[in-house]
Design a protein around this nucleic acid. Structure first.
Length: 954
RNA sequence: GCGCCAGUAGCUCAGCUGGCUAGAGCACACCGCUGAUAACGGUGAGGUCGAAGGUUCGAGUCCUUUCUGGCGCACCA
């Protein structure tokens, strides 16, 4: 036994400093620090100065809280794009961004101020000072989380210009947003119109959904008869003839909105009944009849006729106390759960009603002032009264006039102002819109609200649909339909918000009450904001804000403009408008490039960033801001349920990084099928960790066998490895390697990272570990160190490493670089300054049969194990080779099959396994443990094969 | 309620325009190696392709309905 062990020192056993254990949680931060210290990012940029650009643009996450696994997925996918573009030799200046404005932050800050008692103090300040105080708090809040998130994103090893990120609250960014707005204004897409919003009477302000609290409230619930205007038309709709006048019975819990009633909505496909109820002829939904009769306490009910809602559409009725006639309209949202099936419709007091009103061309009428009192357009007996008192007055009036069928008290959940805890109302207010159906050129200032449609230019919607159908590429393809569907049905874009934390819409009110805002005035203010930030709107006077504005050069300027008497208005932009301007505020303004090759976001952004970037860009430039859209699905838990804190199934990014490291997370992301739902669970990270280790170990094996490789030049290794005969093991490997490189690069180019991941894994697992490494071991360990066969094999290992490091780099930047350094030495150039290796080799189709033959041998050996063979090296096999196709590969077959001897037999029909330990077998070489038939006792007393004797020199 | 997407072995996924006994990796079981060793190699057992109808000589693949889950929208007057 001792003599066999002696030979171990004569073997070329592998050696490497590349550790088996990655220790990622510790090693990654160290790598990160080193990259920063060495200016790796700058080196990469420098290496791509003259390279063709890949323009890629980051959609801004919201600067709130820590990053979650959704961010991890999104940011890593984006990094795969960035890094793979760089490895293809492209320059990619990737600017990370954050969305800073908006209600979620303002809401949190306000909550904080209320809790700390500072809110009361704010109330004592003037409007502008209060707004500024809130804005300062919000800005600090956003800045804090940008810092947190930027550090977390860098910890994911993402490559981006973190030195110069973009924030939507940066002055230059804000100015860019205003420029985009000016462009839309100039083209006539912007207009001002009434729209109902949640309105707090106590605070005289609009509220967002998030600022509402639902509490129970007791309201009157009333049933009201609206008299038909033309009896005969009703008769013909129902196909009957009656003498008395019918009424349409509606139900409402907000009697005070009745003055604004401009329509009654019915469901077109539900049946309505004409009934005589206690002597009065009335119309209610057929299926609501019993319920209604019971509620109003009708004693004598008889149904006269029925008709579909659609038959009623167009019938007219007289308003019970306003002097006007309105008509019946159809609406899909009418339900048969409460009320009468006929819905009181006041376009100025409800969102549905508003939409219906727009569709039907009704006035968005709202006779309620911001203090909650009725204005002079309301009936005299209501004017000046608060809406809550209006309820009783309306009921009393209806009772007196005989229109009230029934009234009762009704408890329901009703929205309240979260701060004043008072009930809110729905009230139409003037809002800014971007019209999606207005043709361009329909007016250059906000004052020309009338849409004449006199031009032939196409609308934003038409342009967007055109782009989505024809120009833009989608990965996956179904995104096209999705975006198209949304664009087809989207309403005009309401871009104004009544908040403090945001970019002001720079509109002024003139002394006569009209609004002043033109493309030129907005551009002048953009100039001001560029240097002073949007706070300037709150701190400067109109004359200062408009310092760069020259009315005499503005064709849209109103005739008698008096800048000194202007009053600033207080709407801010919808944050989506800001984010949707980033193609200009970042990509054009910074000269990064326009349009972008790609936007990559979650599928929710079809409604969000994708669409709301597309519209402004088309409006201003006529071009989409992106050539292609990549969409990923959402993360769900292993049972397919969505992740949420309340379900307790959310994974913490920090935990993942600590337990697995960023690279395992990146490896996992790269392997995921990201269209559709993505299941995520710690178990999957364990799996990803296992396969990461498999790849790592394979790299380690190759590296460890290069410990004594000569210092070849690039040309020398290429020549050595790629010049190997196609029938040799190395020749085969080079063919496989070329195939891998092509496949992986194609995968990266198509954003099909999973394909890359699988190709690399299968290559490491199968091609290398199971086949090449196993077969090459013997020659690497036992051949004379300098034998041509061993050197060629080493050259192949070296080339394989060169290729693998590059292919892995986008996914595993840390590990790839670690391996690259182990391969090239400490002075190796930065991996990301390299480009793909370019393996010039072809697969030889004859190898397919060889591999099938080897698989046959494995099976035969497995059978032989049941009858005595333990170690395949004790076996010799005879392989059938009926057509002689295997013959050229004979020298490699023993190593490939892991046996000691192979012979080919044209007449054999199945693999024959012979145990070489038996009589007539072959002796075992003390050094290589093989029985190749040349083993005999040598001069040093050991039993060695010819090859080993030569290697040892005996 | 509407639009889009997904549902194939325990898990993650391939299966293109319909056509050989439905594939891969992981996990699992068993075996081997002990000179990649908290590594490595081999073999094997796992599926009524979410369900029900239909078209067809033939369907995981096409059509209809349905169930489950995800994203978005709408609804709650």
């Amino acid at each position: 036994m001792s003599d066999t062990r002696d030979y171990k020192t004569t073997l070329n056993l592998p050696k490497t400093a590349f550790p088996m254990k990655a220790n990622l949680a510790q090693a990654e931060p160290a790598t990160l620090a080193r990259w920063q210290k060495q200016g790796v990012s700058a080196a990469i940029t420098a290496s791509r100065v003259n390279a063709p650009k890949f323009v890629f643009h980051d959609g801004p996450p919201y600067a709130n809280g820590s990053i979650h696994v959704g961010h991890l997925l999104n940011k890593v996918l984006k990094d795969l794009v960035v890094r793979s573009a760089i490895m293809e030799g492209r320059g990619c200046h990737y600017v990370p961004g954050w969305d800073c404005h908006g209600l979620p932050i303002e809401h949190r800050v306000m909550t904080g101020l209320v809790e700390s008692g500072k809110a009361a103090k704010l109330e004592t300040l003037s409007d502008e000072h209060r707004r500024m105080a809130i804005r300062r708090e919000c800005a600090a809040y956003a800045a804090k989380f940008i810092k947190t998130q930027a550090a977390q994103m860098q910890r994911l090893l993402t490559l981006a210009d973190y030195e110069n990120p973009y924030f939507t609250m940066q002055p230059e960014y804000e100015a860019g947003t205003l420029e985009v707005f000016a462009g839309l204004l100039e083209k006539g897409y912007v207009f001002r119109q009434l729209k109902p919003v949640h309105w707090s009477i106590a605070n005289r302000t609009a509220l967002a959904e998030a600022e509402l609290e639902y509490e129970d409230r007791v309201d009157p619930s009333i049933y009201v008869d609206f008299e038909a205007a033309d009896t005969s038309k009703v008769d013909s709709a129902f196909g009957v003839e009656c003498d008395c006048k019918p009424s349409f019975m509606i139900w409402t819990t907000t009697p005070w909105t009745l003055p604004a009633n401009l329509a009654i909505a019915v469901h077109p496909r539900h049946k309505y009944a004409l009934v005589e109820m206690d002597g009065a002829l009335t119309i209610v939904a057929a299926e609501m009849l019993d319920k209604v009769a019971a509620v109003v306490g009708a004693t004598a009910v008889s149904k006269k006729a029925e008709a579909l809602g659609s038959a009623l559409v167009g019938l007219e009725y007289r308003h019970p106390f306003c002097d006007r006639t309105s008509r019946i309209v159809a609406a899909e949202y009418v339900t048969m759960e409460d009320g009468t099936g006929l819905v009181h419709t006041a376009p100025g007091h409800g969102d549905d009603d508003y939409r219906t009103g727009l569709r039907e061309g009704l006035e968005i009428y709202c006779p309620v002032r911001d203090d909650g009192t009725f204005d002079e357009t309301a009936p005299k007996w209501l004017q000046g009264k608060v809406v809550w008192d209006g309820n009783a007055l309306v009921i009393e009036h209806l009772r007196t006039s005989g229109h009230l069928v029934h009234a009762l008290q009704f408890t329901h959940s009703y929205p309240h102002d979260w701060r004043s805890r008072t009930p809110v109302i729905f009230r139409a207010t003037e809002q800014w819109f971007i019209g999606v159906d207005r043709p361009a050129g329909s007016g250059a200032s906000a004052n020309s609200a009338a849409n004449t449609g006199a031009t032939t230019s196409t609308s934003l919607r038409a342009m967007a649909l055109e782009a989505v159908s024809k120009t833009v590429k989608f990965f996956p393809e179904w995104g096209r339909n999705r975006l198209r569907g949304m664009l087809e049905s989207r309403p005009d874009w309401c871009i104004s918000r009544q908040r403090s934390w945001g970019l002001p819409i720079p509109a002024f009110r003139q002394a006569d009450g009209s609004v002043f805002m033109t493309a030129a005035s907005v551009r002048a203010i953009a100039d001001c904001v560029k240097s002073k930030g949007s706070d300037a709107w709150f701190t400067l006077a109109p004359t200062e804000l408009l310092a760069a504005y020259d009315a005499s050069k503005d064709p849209d300027a109103p005739k008698s403009l008096d800048i000194a008497s202007l009053a600033k208005m207080h709407d801010i932009f919808d944050v989506w408008f800001e984010a949707g301007s980033s193609w200009h505020s970042v990509m054009r303004q910074r000269g990064v490039g326009f349009p972008s090759a790609l936007y990559l976001e979650g599928s929710d952004q079809h409604r969000g960033w994708f669409q709301l970037s597309l519209l402004p860009a088309l409006g201003v430039t006529g071009k989409p801001p992106f050539d292609a859209l990549v969409t990923h699905g959402f993360l769900v838990d292993k049972d397919g349920r969505k992740m949420s804190k309340s379900l307790g199934n959310a994974l913490e990014v920090d935990t993942l990084l600590k337990d697995y490291g960023a690279e395992v997370a990146r490896w996992w992301v790269s392997g995921v099928a990201y269209d559709g739902d993505i299941r995520i669970d710690l178990d999957y990270f364990k799996v990803a960790g296992d396969s990461y280790r498999k790849v790592r170990n394979t790299l380690r094996f190759l590296l460890s066998n290069l410990f004594d490789a000569p210092a070849w030049s690039d040309e020398e290794v290429r020549a050595l490895a790629l010049g190997a005969p196609p029938e040799s093991l190395v020749g085969w490997l080079m063919g496989e390697l070329a195939q891998l490189e092509a496949e992986a690069r194609a995968g990266y180019a198509a954003y099909d990272f999973r394909k890359v991941h699988l190709a690399i894994f299968n290559f490491c697992n199968e091609t290398l570990s199971a086949i090449f490494c196993a077969a090459a071991k013997d020659r690497l360990y036992c051949d004379a160190a300098n034998s041509p066969r061993r050197r060629t094999t080493q050259a192949a290992a070296s080339v394989t490493m060169e290729v693998l490091c590059r292919l892995l780099a986008p996914i595993l930047p840390h590990t790839a670089e670690e391996a690259w350094t182990a391969l090239r030495g400490e002075n190796a150039p930065v991996l990301f300054t390299q480009t793909h290796y370019g393996v010039k080799a072809n697969r030889d189709a004859r190898w397919t049969d060889v591999m099938i033959a080897c698989a046959g041998v494995s099976k035969a050996i497995e059978v032989a194990k049941t009858t005595g063979i333990d170690n395949p090296l004790d076996a010799a096999v005879i392989i059938p080779d009926p057509h002689g196709t295997l013959a050229p590969f004979l020298p490699e077959l023993a190593d490939l099959c892991g046996v000691s001897q192979v012979t080919l037999d044209r007449s054999a029909t199945s693999v024959v396994v012979r145990d070489l330990r038996q009589d007539g077998g072959a002796g075992r070489c003390d050094r290589s443990w093989r029985r190749d038939g040349t083993v005999r006792v040598r001069s040093d007393g050991g039993a060695l094969s010819d090859r080993d004797a030569l290697a040892v020199g005996v």
